[in-house]
Design a binder for these strands. Structure first.
Lengths: 263, 263
DNA sequence: GCTTGACCTTGACCCAGCGTCAGGGTTGCA
DNA sequence: TGCAACCCTGACGCTGGGTCAAGGTCAAGC
């Protein structure tokens, strides 16, 4: 004669437990019971339940569904429009996430702008070790995550620097130095070379990279992080950083941090 | 020198609580602490966290993220493909739900198959009272819940019957009879008319509806159900049913039950 | 009449993915 | 010296149910 809870559930495509849950939350009116205490549902319950499910599946929280089902026509229509907008936004979000995901596995994991990809390719061609190119790439990923705005400009500038023969030799020297013992005296020479190159470059009027926006305590957070990144990658590089910081005036240090950060 | 948990959180667009949660679940390695017990994060943590978020925002459960972040290239790629498929399905689902939402505003379409919705629309156009259309709709909803297979055929047949001018007049008469006193003599006349129409129709060779599969005791469960549904809706209709059953041979009764059920 | 299996009942605990509060200690700046 | 803004751990709360437990009910077959 009337539907049992299981029949109602099957017909509406929900679980028995869900229906009882809706009763508990006051979403669906408790129906009359038969002689043995079973719930017995009529057509109204079917319609109510379908409304509840349609709203719930659209992502409307049950609390709001409860308010909606006894709202007036106007309020209901307005709410539906709003929910539809939310759905639309959600769809766009998911589509964006799909793109991010494919980026995540397409080669360099996260979106690296074309300039950076070019840069990495050029380094490989120059003969830089895979290991160093990997550290470099990770650095750019980090930079892109923290200060996406500056990535393109910095990459363009580093590409330009790579036109300079001396910078290329310097870069290769650093690459080879990665496996030196931190106590090796050649690291001090290398640090001096780096400092000289930076000084020459500044005096030639070539600007360093633009400052990073989140610059707070004189030394930017990004620089700190990147320095730490390279220091972690190799003990020799860590030593190289220490030598540079120790042996330079503050003015020169800025120049050095260019190299370090960019390296 | 290194990032505090709050700085890391802000830079990666997550909450501090979420980061601690990832530590607890083993997703993100616990970093070293400083002298006062604060966590201090390096560049690796930033990259790890970005990976975690990218996956989590794509809807990957954290438990799976944990497995993914230390999976090999192949497994990772396969998993990403799968996740992307899931995202695609999710998008389609959301789009379907948007359509359902608009249907929800539109009326009966969501709750009943198209044929029945058409039927109800035709009844309204014919001038049948909202109240009777409501009873009719409720009957179809229960029928759909109990015997979904027969709904389409029955609805099509009833739509066909509505082409018959006499049936239309009969239907309207029943509609008007709903508020009569159960003792009113006009109910007997109406019952006789119904019986005559059914007999004519049978002799004209127009088949009744297909039997319902759960037909068990001669009179189908569904018929009983529908009869009860209409009897409950109005005392006059209940009386109409009684009159019909009383005054007819078993053979004719089948014809009547057609009308009653279909009514 | 008795069993069996599919239902129904309430109540209670469990899960993710955090939010939020409580009750502390630390840091940095005025 | 005080205050705001951090940090720490631990614990409970929330949504939308799933899942088990410990029964009562119903229809069928033997």
């Amino acid at each position: 004669m009337l539907l049992t809870i299981g029949q109602l559930a099957r017909h509406c495509g929900v679980s028995v437990r869900a229906i009882r849950h809706y009763h508990q939350r006051g979403l669906l009116a408790e129906p009359a019971r038969d002689a043995s205490g079973y719930r017995r549902y009529g057509a109204q319950a079917v319609m109510d339940l379908i409304r509840i499910r349609t709203l719930a599946e659209a992502g409307v929280p049950l609390a709001q569904v409860a308010r909606l089902i006894d709202a007036d026509q106007q309020g209901f229509a307005a709410a539906i429009t709003e929910i539809d907008d939310a759905l639309h936004r959600q769809i766009s979000d998911l589509q964006r996430r799909r793109r991010q995901l494919t980026d995540l596995m397409a080669g360099d994991r996260l979106v690296l702008p074309a300039e950076v990809a070019d840069l990495l390719a050029e380094l490989r061609e120059l003969g830089v070790s895979d290991w160093s190119v990997g550290v470099e790439r990770d650095g750019w990923i980090l930079l892109a995550a923290l200060s996406p705005d500056v990535v393109q400009a910095w990459a363009a500038e580093k590409l330009a620097a790579l036109r300079d023969t001396e910078f290329r030799r310097l870069y290769l020297a650093c690459d080879e130095a990665r496996s030196l013992d931190p106590a090796d005296p050649r690291l001090a020479e290398l640090a001096a070379w780096m400092a000289r190159w930076a000084a020459d470059r500044r005096s030639a009027g070539v600007g360093g990279p633009q400052p990073v926006p989140d610059d707070t305590a004189g030394v930017s957070l990004v620089e700190t992080l990147m320095t730490a990144q390279f220091a972690e990658a190799s003990p020799a590089w860590r030593r190289l950083g220490e030598l540079s910081r120790a042996g330079l005036t503050p003015a020169a240090r800025v120049g050095l941090s260019d190299i370090q950060t960019q390296r």
